[in-house]
Amino acid sequence: MAVTDCNALPCASRFTAVPIALLAIVLTLPLGGCSFDLGSWGSDREKPQAVEQKPTGTISGQSVSDAQGHAARGLALAKSGKTEEALAEFDRALALDPYNVPALYGRGLIYQADKQHEHAIADFTAANGLTPQQVEPLLARATSYLAIDRAKEAASDLDEAVQADPNSAQAWSARGVTYERLGDKAKAFTSYGRALALRPKDEAARSGLARTGG
């Protein structure tokens, strides 16, 4: 299922047929060649207080540092289209530090691209718990929910996403798609309108507005 027109993106080895439009509308990532750009939102200093209260002595400073290195290599490999190698690096990072958000998010994207949506949802859920004010994990999880016909859960995530960032055109557009699927044309129309106001060249939102406004 694609949010807009669905294309295929060849990635490394078995990770093929990635729905570009489906991911692009909700992740705000440059997806050509399965690229990843997570920015700084998963940094250690942004971890919530709940994470800081984990039992002492369970994760050493060296382990955290090593995990960050594996995560960084994973992101670089994913940008290069070496998706299986990237997955291995993310796995190593999380074995050392289960709280490494870039590794969770990056691994989730790889699972999502491979249509392993339950695994993707688990990683995005963990990432969301560690960075609750960030839109990206919510949008990504909503994409996987939609892919497995769990539109109500997707709608809940997208409601939260637009509250976290009312200026996210991607969140509003995805919310429009989701509520249109649920048959709530009023919410879909409002969502598409907000997306179009934020991103006037969003043809998917424009089409959605026309479909739900009649």
Rank of each mutant, 00 (worst) to 15 (best):
A142W: 05
H119E: 10
E85N: 02
A103P: 00
G74E: 09
L87F: 13
N128Q: 15
Q68R: 15
F90H: 09
V64W: 09
V51N: 06
A126Y: 11
G81Y: 05
G108R: 02
A142Q: 06
G61C: 02
A103K: 01
P98D: 06
S80T: 06
G108H: 04
N128F: 11
R107D: 05
Y105E: 14
A93K: 02
R141K: 06
G57E: 01
A76R: 07
A95I: 04
A122E: 14
L139E: 12
A76I: 08
P98T: 09
A72W: 12
H70V: 07
T131E: 11
L94V: 01
A76F: 07
I121F: 02
A103M: 05
A127Y: 10
E85K: 05
G57F: 12
D66N: 03
R141V: 01
Q116W: 02
A67T: 08
E85T: 02
G106M: 01
K79M: 07
L130S: 05
R92T: 03
H119N: 11
A113L: 06
P48Q: 14
A140Y: 02
A113K: 05
A67G: 04
V135E: 10
D114N: 10
A140L: 03
P98M: 11
G57R: 02
R141P: 06
A103H: 01
A67Y: 00
Q68F: 13
G108Y: 04
P98C: 13
I110Y: 01
G61T: 10
V101C: 12
V51I: 03
R92P: 04
L94K: 02
S60I: 05
L109I: 05
L94A: 12
G129Y: 06
Q53F: 14
F90W: 14
A127I: 00
A103L: 05
A78F: 08
A113S: 14
D114Q: 14
L104H: 08
A142R: 03
H119M: 09
E52H: 09
P48N: 15
V64H: 11
D114T: 00
Q53E: 12
A67L: 12
Q134R: 15
G106H: 06
F124Q: 00
F124D: 00
S80K: 09
G81F: 05
S63G: 13
F90S: 06
L75C: 12
Q62H: 07
V101S: 14
V51G: 03
T58C: 14
